[in-house]
């Protein structure tokens, strides 16, 4: 395997009340697609946020490297500008900030150059069309009053406009109707096609993965990765559930 894009070694992270992630090891190569599964409350979102650098989670051990560089202590905005993207499970609402103005500022911050308005507008329009978003959404306040599905589409819109090298998608498909899942899935494929970027997809749902080639699957239980495998692991979990892995999590807990 070539130099990994993301390399997580023995990563532990905690909040005031205690440790949520325990000695996580995970490697994602450039352009690879990984799936992260696990029961509710396992720590999947926490892992995504810790990779992104949410100051809520204190790293208590281990390292995160991106593109060969240790980013464990790096501020979130720098990580973003290096090419890490997190699609939020619960995107935040920002009243008074339009989707368009926000994207323009984000692009300017990332490139350090003024955004060329005409080109930007054209691009925005075409991506919104791909995601079957009404053009009026560009003028709406970011996520404010959006339905759950609209928020998730807006996350994929940002993904496509900002073109990161690694996209962590945290349950981007949950709460979506069948058509919306298809649209979001098409958006993700478009991201792969355009940028060749890597993906870490957190999901409970196989539908979003249908047209994607999954390279690796990881199972997270109680803050630990208890199993790694290839794409077939997903089918197994869908058939048998997490039962077996929850057991494994218990056993690992006993060992330590």
């Amino acid at each position: 395997m070539s130099e990994p894009l993301l390399q997580i070694q023995d990563l532990s992270a905690a909040i005031e009340e205690g440790e949520l992630l325990h000695q996580i090891n995970l490697e994602i190569g450039p352009g690879e697609t990984h799936v992260l599964m696990g029961p509710n409350g396992a720590g999947k979102s926490t892992l995504g946020h810790t990779i992104m650098g949410n100051p809520q989670y204190r790293v208590t051990g281990g390292t995160i490297r991106f593109d060969g560089e240790d980013i464990t202590e790096m501020p979130v905005d720098e990580r973003s500008r290096k090419g890490i993207f997190l699609s939020f499970q619960n995107p935040l609402e920002v009243p008074g900030l339009s989707v368009e103005a926000f994207l323009r500022s984000a692009l300017r911050a990332r490139t350090g150059k003024p955004v060329r308005i005409f080109q930007f507008k054209k691009e925005l329009e075409s991506v919104m069309e791909l995601l079957q978003m009404d053009p009026s959404y560009a003028d709406r306040d970011l996520n404010a009053g959006f339905s759950g599905g609209e928020k998730k589409k807006a996350e994929i819109l940002q993904l496509l406009m900002l073109s990161p090298r690694l996209a962590i998608l945290d349950e981007t498909d949950s709460g979506l109707d069948v058509d919306a899942v298809r649209t979001v899935s098409a958006g993700i494929r478009e991201y792969q096609k355009r940028t060749g970027g890597a993906l870490l997809i957190i999901t409970h749902n196989a539908a979003i993965l249908n047209a994607l080639q999954v390279d690796h699957t990881h199972v997270l239980v109680r803050g630990r990765i208890v199993a790694d495998g290839d794409g077939s692991l997903i089918d197994e979990i869908h058939r048998d559930g997490f039962e077996k892995y929850i057991e494994m999590g218990r056993d690992m807990l006993k060992e330590t």
Partner: peptide, 29 residues
């Protein structure tokens, strides 16, 4: 909201810009 600041920073905006955008949005009326 710390979460909103984090959200905007996760898109590449500096902390100062993220906060300024939230405040400008608040004042947008």
């Amino acid at each position: 909201s710390d979460d909103a600041v984090f959200y905007l920073m996760a898109r590449g905006l500096s902390e100062e810009d993220a906060k300024a955008m939230i405040v400008s949005g608040f004042a947008s009326d």
